[in-house]
């Protein structure tokens, strides 16, 4: 059976939360932190929080944000796994297409991601056209594949719960407490994550060495 790997982006593939890192560059870190923390804790509905966070950053030209995003540090071992398994992996993020395209290209994941979509005019965001609900991705994929989902935040809850194999990753920051109940595994080290994902890909009883 085919295996498909779904990766959260922020604090799973990247070593920082993307939007807060950008907010910091323009001195909006406090407003952003408040929104992000409330969201990760599950107090603030994700859609509302996301809209507010985008608004906070929409004063910066889109191309500038895209550059900043593409400079964000990534977990190299996870990116290596993505490169080796490009054809069976997807990034699943609520971040905006226009902000992450450049980063996706840099890590070799052109065309291999699901995200939210924005309309841009004159290098500015004029409208959020669609906010991705992560759990919707599974139903879009061919049902015959085994789905492995990897994430760290409360917005990964349904994606991990619905996956055949749900992994919460705490290598960047603490795993959202809600994920514990729906995870099959927790992993706190990116090398270990890469090894275990490779073992899953190889299949049962093929990991003798």
């Amino acid at each position: 059976m085919d295996t498909i790997f779904l990766f959260d982006l922020d604090s799973t593939v990247t070593k920082q939360e993307i939007l807060p890192t950008i907010a910091k560059k323009i001195g909006k870190q406090n407003e952003m932190r408040e929104l992000t923390e409330k969201t990760m804790m599950g107090i603030l509905p994700f859609q509302d929080s996301f809209t507010s966070r985008v608004k906070l950053l929409s004063q910066i030209p889109v191309s500038e944000v895209a550059d900043l995003v593409s400079d964000i540090e990534v977990n190299e071992e996870i990116v290596e796994f993505l490169k080796e398994n490009r054809e069976s992996s997807f990034i699943v993020t609520s971040n905006l297409d226009v902000w992450i395209e450049k980063l996706m290209h840099k890590i070799g994941m052109d065309g291999r991601y699901y995200c939210s979509k924005a309309k841009v005019e004159d290098d500015r965001i004029v409208k959020i056209e669609n906010i991705l609900e992560k759990e919707s991705v599974q139903s879009e994929l061919t049902s015959r594949a085994k789905i492995v989902a990897i994430g760290d935040g409360s917005n990964d809850f349904d994606m991990i719960r619905k996956a055949d194999i749900g992994i919460s990753f705490g290598g960047v920051r603490d795993i959202a407490p809600s994920l514990i109940d729906v995870s099959d595994y927790s992993i706190y080290n990116e090398t270990k994550l890469r090894k275990f994902l490779t073992a899953i890909k190889n299949g049962e009883y093929q990991n003798e060495q």
Binding site: S186, A199, I200
Partner: peptide, 27 residues
């Protein structure tokens, strides 16, 4: 930190055999 943590969510109902069965996958 390079340990694989395996959840046995039904530990109140099942036994150590269930724990091992879960943990032996992809070993």
């Amino acid at each position: 930190d390079d340990v694989l943590f395996v959840y046995n969510h039904n530990y109140q109902q099942n036994g150590t055999g269930a724990s091992v069965s879960l943990a032996k996958r992809y070993s």
